[in-house]
Design a binder for these strands. Sequence first.
DNA 1: CTTAGGG
DNA 2: CCCTAAG
Length: 618
Amino acid sequence: MVLKKRLSNGLRGFQVPEIPRYPRSARTRVPFEKPAEDGHACAFELLASLAGKLLQEGESSTSSNVSEVKLISKEQYRSGNCDEKRSGKDVEISEADCILECISGSDNVKSEILKLESKFGNDSNTNRLVELTNNHEAGRSGFQGLSANDKFSLKDPLDLRVNSPSLVELNNNVKSPFCGELFPNASFLKHGNDNKLHFIDDDEKFVRCNKVCTKSKAFRPSRRIARKIIRKRLTSKHWKVAPKLKDYEHSRYDKGIKPASRKRKPYYNFERSQCYTLSKRKKLSEKGSMVTRGGGFSSESVSDLPKKGICGNNRSANTKTHVSKDSHVKFRIKSFRIPELYVEVPETATVGSLKRKVMEAVMTIIGGGMHVGVLVQGKKVRDDNRTLRQTGISCKENLDKLGFVLEPSSSQASPVVCAGDPSHCEASEPIMSLRTPSIESGISVAKQDSSLVTNTGDLVEINHESASSVDDTISGKLTRDSAMLVPIPDNSSEALAAIPVSHNTGHSEIVQRRTRRPFSVSEVEALVQAVEEVGTGRWRDVKLRCFENADHRTYVDLKDKWKTLVHTAKISPQQRRGQPVPQELLDRVLAAHAFWSIHQAKHHVKHQTNGVQPLVIM
DNA sequence: CTTAGGG
DNA sequence: CCCTAAG
């Protein structure tokens, strides 16, 4: 049983009664949760289960139980001494004590819990959570119960699913005790009178929607669907590449194409016009070193540009740079040289197929983790955070000596492209690899704005006809959506073995791992608030509430982020990594987690007929 | 499609 | 982040 297995990790020596799973539709959860990774029992989750159990035992007995609890230090607890007492009851109490010990240190957490309680209900179950921690502290002062700010009319959090007027009011008029205190990095934009609160994150163009979701399940936003369709379309334009020389297992291009993969996995990176990375590296060959030894870029002739930009019919491929009066650096890159490619095609292959193969190879290389290096006077500029001015790029002399290189990312395996006619794809050997030099392709890279230079992979456009749309690009006509790799149309009659990924069949599929996108503080804030309001376990609602417009955050992502947040909140600040999350947020995370855990536990308990059996020692 | 949980 | 079981 899964449950047993999980528990056996952290609760050594305890046997947990088997608790039946409850239907998710009831939005309930098993009160016993997975212990923390480090093997220590997870305080909140245990607390949640404890709360559930206490509930079983009746209202009155609870507080007395707590008052009897003997203090056990964290050390004792962690070292497993919690279970020195070997009677069922004692164990239970000891656990409770340990849990309380673990969380009672922070008044902030309790404060947050109180807020939640005052907002979502004051039934005895939830109050007990804070009561427990307070009792446990026995005499510690300093914590003031929250003044009743609680005009909130929501009794049952599940109400949030519907478009309840009270909720709207909550968002519009009432300052939620947990909302909006901390958006350090966000700029807010109020849009008219609607109750949407958009903000744009610093780095992400993440738009937060603070509005209430008014859509019932039956009324899913059609935009969402549209986006998915678009995604699918995009996906279908990806070319399949073989992962590995050896394992190459060509898949056929079945003319009777199966319906597009039902896989929901969208190719976000692509969508966001970033270089997409090859993932599943495990599946990729470790050999076949990346052959891209420095595709280079030469800035040949450089000349001033008209102030208005570089539009015009001039199709010159020259690289041009220019510093305008508004101190914007404008430039055009004539071409990038693609790092070495090796292409081999049968004599009978068509020119079209050759083009496609080269295209694939190029896409594969670029997608396989290529990034742009910036050179000034032949020296590489490594610090991405420096400004052009600081780097000296904007100064005229250096402007003439500005260079770019395409560089393979480290640890990228060599991509191999399958192309040629279908029969070739069945051969055991790949017909294109990246080993030996030979073909250069006309890839033009254009940046809308010099400020983008320091980012990698902003606008990369491949143009078979060699740099034809550079002008448009630079003049800003290229929209965000179109600023992506543009594969050649695949509607040619000579269907080749360049296989859209969605049609693949075998194991030779390369699945793209989405690029890592660390949550910003603003996003965390949004997430925390959403969870505070709808609770854990309703990730779709959370998504709709706060991340509906952030396509790159799926509800699974949000759930995962919450998971890590809870973990982060429980570990010591020293052990935390990455962009620090404000402690205030972490407190709220703990509080919300605890609160909603017991709420769910409560709901769970409600459906129980016989109650939870006590813990038993093996 | 959603949730939950493991990897 | 990914994957998958399960509902």
